[in-house]
């Protein structure tokens, strides 16, 4: 069975990254959801992000 068909037979457990309102909608329906408290990496400084990416590699 493919991963997608397996998902159709499982309980959906969601990680929400971004708009918190999507998380709140799901939470209100008692869906299993966790909200990632995301922040722009390196304060959104693009030069710094590139440097960090290089370091990770």
């Amino acid at each position: 069975m493919s991963e997608i068909n397996e998902l159709f037979n499982k309980q959906l457990r969601i990680a929400n990254i971004g708009l918190e309102s999507f998380y709140k909608d799901l939470k209100a329906k008692e869906i299993d959801v966790i909200h990632v408290n995301w922040r722009p990496p390196a304060g959104g400084n693009k030069k710094m992000i590139k440097l960090l990416d290089k370091l990770k590699k």
Partner: peptide, 17 residues
């Protein structure tokens, strides 16, 4: 996301906005 999956290892779906 890494720590979310660590906290809830059964996570199977991600909604990204």
């Amino acid at each position: 996301l890494e720590s979310a999956v660590k906290y809830e290892p059964l996570t199977n779906f991600s909604l990204i906005s």
